[in-house]
Design a protein around this nucleic acid. Structure first.
Lengths: 192, 192
DNA sequence: GACCTACAATTCGGATCCGAACGACCGGAC
DNA sequence: GTCCGGTCGTTCGGATCCGAATTGTAGGTC
């Protein structure tokens, strides 16, 4: 059991504490969000530079393969949603994976708007071979946690995701106060 | 108190369970890593489309500003490390921020190799104005967690980061078995 | 001085990445 | 049939993003 004073606060968090002396801050919330993102990037970096490097796959490409693998066959918008990328990004990633022979893109039999993604036999073989190694590294990065801590962690994080999925859109609307959201500086412009 | 059977497993996790029936998998580890990344992307997306959208700043640009803000003045390699991006990416991001008048780049007084980053007065004012709103959204996304759960979450995630930081490099070396890591398919080639 | 190793930021090829605009398609109303 | 609102995937401008190659400086040794 750790006492609060023994937590291993990072150097950056200490500096933030000093800088924010005069500003009211919800420090536990700040620390929680900062560490969610830091852990995610650290884990991604480790996996990209261990198991994925040998196959020259990016994290995103692997996630897309994984989603299609467990779903069997899926419509692109659902894959994009589950993989956490935009539809436009998926178009590019799935083309890359198709060119490597791992993914197949086929038309929906009755709805001409839809495109279905599925793994080729080579893609299936790839996942059967690489996923165990991937899972080994997942075990490595969580090596300082017990099984029960992993379950608790996943459960806690699911509640964060659920909060945003169920209340996020409403929240963003109320923050804008009815105004239309500002367009991004980058991105496609109206027809020239 | 939740019982194991009442955890809100996502649909994808159920499908993975079925697909992996014949493969030995450390399921708690898989769920932990998957939810770390999913939560990180969900939170990032919400913040980019709420407080950051109005200022037309990306998450990465904001993180860089934040790091420089709490550090006061810092060398670029340290900022890149802390922000979780490569030095090359920081060169581009800091140039973008400089062009908007939020960040200043200055030469180190004695070491000509170093570049120091600091906020302009406009950048300081920006952070004093935007950070409280950012922190409000951090509180929103963690709204279903208690203060104590946030502290526990941050503590658990720090242990994941620590594991990779302290053992990751050695681990990646041993996985490669002494071989040099394969180069990425993308990236700069030897001089043509 | 010349030379060399170490380390700094920058350059840049290729791949992502977002999201607004867009074109193709669906399905119901008329 | 034609229209028309809604929903697909794709296109594409601009910004990231990585990391190997490169350029430049530091701090020696000779």
């Amino acid at each position: 059991m750790r006492l609060p004073g023994q937590r291993s606060i990072t150097e950056a968090e200490k500096l933030a504490e000093a800088k924010l002396g005069g500003i009211p801050v919800r420090r536990e919330r700040m620390a929680a969000v900062a560490n969610i993102y830091r852990a995610a990037m650290t884990v991604r970096h480790h996996l990209e530079n261990s198991v994925l490097r040998g196959s020259d796959l990016t994290w995103t490409a692997f996630v897309v393969l994984w989603v299609v693998w467990v779903w069997g066959e899926a419509e692109t918008r659902h894959v994009a949603e589950e993989a956490g990328i935009s539809k436009g990004t998926l178009t590019g990633v799935s083309r890359t994976l198709e060119s490597r022979g791992l993914l197949r893109r086929s038309a929906h039999p009755t709805d001409g708007r839809l495109v279905l993604l599925s793994l080729t036999e080579e893609g299936e073989a790839f996942m059967r071979r690489v996923f165990p190694a991937f899972n080994e590294e997942e075990a490595f990065v969580t090596g300082r946690l017990t099984d029960e801590e992993c379950r608790g962690l996943a459960d806690t994080l699911r509640r964060v995701v659920l909060q945003v999925e169920e209340r996020g859109e409403e929240r963003r609307r109320s923050l804008l106060g009815g105004d239309a959201p500002a367009p991004r500086r980058s991105g496609r412009r109206a027809q020239g």
